[in-house]
Nucleic acid binder design. Sequence first.
RNA 1: GGGCUCGUAGCCUAGCACGGAUUAAGGUGUCAGCCUUCGGAGCUGAAGAUCGAGGGUUCAAAUCCCUCCGGGCCCGCCA
Length: 448
Amino acid sequence: MGKIYTVTSCIVEINRLKRIREAATLAHAADDLVKANKEIDEWMSIAAELKGKYPVLFEALTSQISQDENPEEEIKRLNCAYENGEPNAKQLIREVSDLCLEGFRETMKRVAVTYDSWDWESDFVWSTQVNDVLAKLKSSPFVNSEKGVFAFDAEKVVQTLDLKGKLGLSENNEVPPLTLGRADGTTLYITRDIAYTLWKFKHAKKVINVIGMEQSLAQLQLKIALYAMGCSEYAENLVHFAYNLVTLPGYKMSSRRGHYITFDDVLTEAVQRAYEEVTKRSPLLSEEEKRKIADFVGLGAVRYALVDVDPSKPVMFTWERVLNFETNSAPYVQYTHARACSILRKAEREPETPAFELLTEKLERELIMNLAGFPDMFIEATEYYKPNMIADYANVLADKFNTFYNALPVIKADSQELSDARIALTRAIQIVMHNALNLIGVVAPEKM
RNA sequence: GGGCUCGUAGCCUAGCACGGAUUAAGGUGUCAGCCUUCGGAGCUGAAGAUCGAGGGUUCAAAUCCCUCCGGGCCCGCCA
């Protein structure tokens, strides 16, 4: 599906640019001509690349698309039909979308990500919800029309309602206007998203939109639109959790240009790498066990890598970075957890009333303080949308436990009482580490 | 052009919202140790940073304010 998308968009883009070039030539617009030629060159080289990679697909799509003299017009027409709810268009688009979503779900299932509910954006178009939003905005003093299209004057809202401070905008930050719909009557994404957001607030007090950083402006305009519609309480409870995009060394990821690495590839590669590692470290394990361990180590490493860094930081993708099990702490923390489990297994007892006062070593105190801080850390992580704090916490706890493990004997402690107390401490650490890992979706294994 | 965002040892990252116990923390890499103890995907130690640059506020700044530099993003009848 991704390949079809990439090739199609490439062919259509070249067609479009060629038409622009023709127009520029006729109009003797030198600047436009140079620009168009430059872009055509770029896309032609992408086309050559794609043709080499997928020759059969490329040929098939080229001949199909060339049957249309103006493929873009056809796309427009289809979109129009879809929004108008014409059965054929609906059936076609939903069928293709379903295929995409199916693949999406399949991939996410590999990392145990599930979704409570799914919504079709187009449902908001077919119902009255998007139109309601448009009507409400049009009746406000913040919308003006130009040549039949309506534009939302976000800056005017900010001025009128004095929102600069509230939104954390600097004095010289003028919010650009937002176009609300196309001339042909079809809807635009942000307008649909306003309707969708209002709907979300019917089901929740707080809405966190997890959307890439490049949509910061659009999300800001969405929030301002809520204020303009008199939903200031919603606006204040709407959070845009922005994350930075991953770039590839040399160029940015772009599915339209075929420059991307799929999540499936990353997962497969990670599990493969983990398998090699397990085989090297524990050659005596059965094939089945090795596969099992490779699975949770590889997937754990990927999940840890995703949650480990502040999402606002720019990240450069390299296989080395994602698959380096030395740098990535997931296998380390998992290993530490398995170690704690191993001690508990060997201890063969669960002391009922351990004498905690015997835990007087500095290391033991530190561990106890760390454990005690777990709830507060979790609250802070959720309060400020910082999942990386949980990953960090698990890592620090593992560090401290490993130091403790190395310095102080648990089972072979000087006295039975001290041993009991340390077993209880180990158990507590194991439970908290297990919980911390679970919170970030990483398996806490008993053996590995 | 305007706006937003990131900039911490060779590399990767934490700390910045709430300025002070920070002699700036961890990982990786480099170097030196631990292979007689509960799992070595481990532990101990060393070297490595004028916290992008410059001003300002303050008794005190990685943290707050201003200016500048560098990377990324946005300013569409795309999403």
